[in-house]
Computed example of a mutant assay.
Amino acid sequence: MYETTLLTPIKLGPLTLENRLVLPPLTRSRSSQPGNIPNALMAEYYRQRSTAGLLITEGIQIEPRGQGYAWTPGLHSQAQIDGWKQVTAAVHGQGKPIFAQLWHVGRVSHTSLQPQGEAPIAPSAIRAENVSVFIETGPGTGALAEPSAPRALSTAEVKDLVNLYAQAARNALEAGFDGVELHCANGYLVNQFISAHSNQRTDEYGGSLHNRLRFLREITQAVADVVGKERVGVRFAPLFSSTDEARVYLGLVEANPHETYIEAIKAMQAIGIGYVSMAEADWDAAPALPDSFRQAAREAFSGLLMYAGKYDGPRAAKVIEAGWADLVGFGRWFIANPDLPARLRNGWPLEPLDAASMYGGTAVGYTDYPVYTG
């Protein structure tokens, strides 16, 4: 079954992916301190999961103000670039491509994570609700905290951020990445510009949907100019409804999510990027993404479409066979099953995920998950 869907090769611009399974961005908080530097343990983690057709890194902050959680890696210092070279070399040694996910959390941060303890930055000075950040409380220890109140960016500062994204893309190339993905989902900075809930600006970056999408268009074009448009992906997280208000993506439910995200996808089509990824809501009783949205996304975008969420093999095969998806991201399953393609191909049992070791720590729950031996 899967040999005709998930396990077939596909082209992503100049790259040939061995299969349709993707390691999606997964925050694991294992970077070395001080400096949020990628390390040999991280290189081994990604090497093990190079059974995927495409690997996308965990979110990587593009500048010091982009950090919202302790121990997450960056891509703005030379030490960080050099650290990522270990990771890309390990993945390339397995013959697979890897993209860097460029991340800026915006208002979803805490003053203790910000340079000189300053307020986080945001489109508007509106505090993030229904979310926690993770701050360091001591060497190797941390705790959840509420995000600090942000300050609004000036128009000039927004334009400076576009340049920072372009520089991060240049850093990604220096580190050996094959492309980049822009994190435009889950209530972080780009999503904050898109959402009318968090963007109450009166300049060219606020107001109408066209203006709220301007930051997205500008950073995507800037990054595409650096790495090549076919080597760029963008991740969105369209959420249509929820009865669980505490789990709404940081409060950023759109009045008309279909219109908002189809327009965003059309903007990506105009630039000509390689893929668009949709991160579906994946908590218990989460609202399903409507098939009408999937169909509209397919009609609006000629590149590859990726979906990630609570997918198993049959569900992933179904969306590919329906023509809605080209790639499917398997997050939790790839964490616990580094040999996931072989397990799906052969019907081998899947290892369960150890949720307690998801964030921070050592090799335990990170690089010690076994491959199947029968």
Rank of each mutant, 00 (worst) to 15 (best):
A281Y: 02
I81E: 04
M42I: 15
L164E: 14
R294S: 10
N171I: 01
T373Q: 14
L75E: 08
W84E: 08
A270R: 15
S31M: 14
R47G: 00
G13Q: 01
R343M: 12
A322Y: 03
I271W: 02
Q80T: 09
A128E: 11
A355R: 13
S242G: 06
F215E: 06
K85P: 01
G95Q: 04
S132W: 02
Y165S: 08
L239G: 04
L6F: 06
I219P: 01
G309R: 09
L327Q: 05
G66E: 07
V180M: 05
L327T: 05
H104D: 12
V22A: 04
M1K: 00
E58H: 10
Y261T: 07
E259D: 11
P38Q: 02
A175P: 01
G360K: 11
L216D: 06
F293C: 03
Y69C: 05
V91F: 12
V133C: 10
Q86V: 09
L189A: 04
E157Y: 03
T57W: 10
Y46N: 01
I60Y: 02
R127D: 08
F301A: 02
F177T: 03
Q101R: 07
W324C: 03
N256D: 15
F301Q: 05
S112T: 14
E263I: 12
W348L: 09
I273R: 03
G347T: 10
P257Y: 11
A175W: 07
S29F: 14
V87R: 03
D284T: 12
E136A: 15
F334W: 01
D244F: 10
V364M: 00
A288R: 06
Q78C: 00
Y188C: 08
M1F: 00
G251I: 04
Y46H: 00
T141I: 10
W283H: 11
S148D: 14
A168F: 12
F236K: 01
L213K: 06
S241E: 13
D282W: 09
P64N: 05
L26D: 08
R294N: 07
G59P: 08
Q200W: 00
G329K: 12
E299G: 00
A40V: 03
R28M: 13
L7F: 13
E230Q: 15
N171W: 01
R217T: 13
L344I: 15
T88C: 04
A246Q: 09
L21P: 05
I126E: 02
F215N: 08
A356S: 15
R65D: 13
G329Q: 14
R332F: 06
N130G: 07
Q33Y: 07
Y2Q: 04
H210Y: 00
P24F: 14
P120N: 15
H92I: 11
E136Y: 01
A286R: 03
L12T: 05
Y366Q: 11
I335P: 05
T88A: 06
G233S: 05
H197Q: 09
G93Q: 11
M278Q: 02
G142F: 03
F236S: 06
A296W: 02
N19S: 15
K11G: 06
Q192G: 08
P14R: 15
